[in-house]
């Protein structure tokens, strides 16, 4: 099943990645899942609160995520997953990504460089600890 997001939204996510370079940015993807697929209808920038520094790590501020969860519900949407950037690194999930991933979420990764962004990919895992499977991003 592919994940669908608008070109506008992809541009907004890339802008976030560019702005935070050389640090990793992160955010939540909101939307719905139906028979035709996963639709990202909205997204929220979230603060990176990782204790080990933000250049190579991210952790979503749980309080902000808690508010996003409530907001999504109020608007009849679900949290479909998250996006984050890999500064100076390919848009490929690392071992650290894999050991922290939850099945059920889509993880969008965008590679970032000074002043620009690179590939954007999306990944899911079937089960905790399993390797990532790449899923297609369909832009509309």
């Amino acid at each position: 099943m592919a994940i669908r997001l608008s070109r506008y939204r992809a541009r907004m996510i890339r802008a976030h990645a560019r702005e935070t370079y050389p640090d990793e940015c992160c955010g939540a993807l909101l939307g719905e899942v139906n028979a035709e697929g996963k639709w990202v209808r909205s997204h929220r920038r979230l603060d990176n609160v990782h204790e080990d520094g933000h250049r190579r790590r991210f952790r979503v501020d749980p309080y902000a995520l808690m508010l996003v969860e409530k907001e999504a519900r109020a608007q009849g949407m679900k949290v479909l997953g998250f996006y984050h950037s890999h500064p100076d690194h390919p848009a490929v999930p690392s071992e650290y990504d894999r050991t922290h991933a939850w099945p059920g979420y889509s993880y969008i990764i965008v590679s970032s460089r000074p002043g620009r962004t690179g590939r954007m990919t999306s990944w899911i895992i079937e089960d905790e600890g399993a390797p990532f499977t790449q899923e297609e991003i369909e832009r509309e």
């Binding site: 990793e24 990782h50 520094g53």
Partner: peptide, 15 residues
């Protein structure tokens, strides 16, 4: 009560 999973990741294991 809101259950919020910890969402984290990053580029590599070695710093």
């Amino acid at each position: 009560l809101t259950i919020v999973p910890s969402i984290a990741g990053g580029v590599g294991l070695l710093d």
